[in-house]
């Protein structure tokens, strides 16, 4: 079973990134998948996290306990959840907004910066983050995640999201050569 967590602040697109990953796994790759969203009591803002569990077997307990993959988009969620990572788990941070201690083996990417400077839309940061996670770990195939994204996005914003996701996939794949995250199986 693979356990992935995306966390950040409300409005960053964390839940959306999580659902795209979950749908890629369930709809396009036929895995048993559970996606759990959790929120604070606030209507907006606050912290948010999205867990995605992917398995070839029936998933009973729908909670992530030892994370294979963790994407932290802000400092608060990084501090709060890095302890849930399993040993040698893949820890991806937005280097612009998270400063993790070096011993945590975090892999930093300038996610928000790329979203602002290259894609010119800060809201696409979560798509870049998703792309990096998939490119780095290959939990699902690139095609599956792109298809899942295109299925979910209204045409008006499809192109910019796709651009961001593909940019992320490229960043992740490139890093994969040097980082070599532990092999993951659903």
């Amino acid at each position: 079973m693979i356990q992935a967590r995306f966390a950040g602040s409300g409005g960053q697109g964390i839940q959306f990134a999580g659902s795209v990953l979950a749908e890629a796994a369930a709809v396009y790759e036929g895995h048993n998948t559970v996606q759990v969203s959790s929120f604070g009591p606030e209507a907006r803002g606050g912290s948010t996290k999205c867990d995605v569990l992917i398995s070839s077997r029936t998933i009973y307990y729908p909670r992530a306990r030892s994370l294979d993959v963790f994407l932290a988009m802000n400092q608060k969620s990084s501090d709060r959840y890095y302890a849930d990572l399993k040993e040698h788990g893949c820890f991806v941070i937005d280097s612009g907004s998270v400063s993790a201690a070096a011993e945590l083996d975090a892999i930093g990417f300038p996610i928000t910066q790329v979203a602002l400077e290259e894609i010119k839309n800060v809201i696409t940061a979560s798509m870049i983050g998703l792309g990096i996670v998939v490119g780095l770990t290959k939990i699902v195939s690139d095609e599956a995640v792109i298809k899942a994204l295109m299925d979910r996005t209204p045409p008006r914003v499809a192109e910019i999201n796709r651009q961001a996701l593909e940019r992320g996939l490229k960043m992740g794949s490139r890093a994969r050569r040097s980082v070599r995250p532990h092999v993951l199986h659903a």
């Binding site: 749908e23 709809v27 036929g30 048993n32 998948t33 195939s141 095609e143």
Partner: peptide, 20 residues
């Protein structure tokens, strides 16, 4: 009972399509 889906095979959708 939740139906167990077959693991990934090939590229596309499964014979028994799922949604989330």
């Amino acid at each position: 009972r939740q139906k167990k889906t077959s693991p990934k095979s090939g590229d596309g959708r499964k014979a028994d399509p799922m949604r989330l």
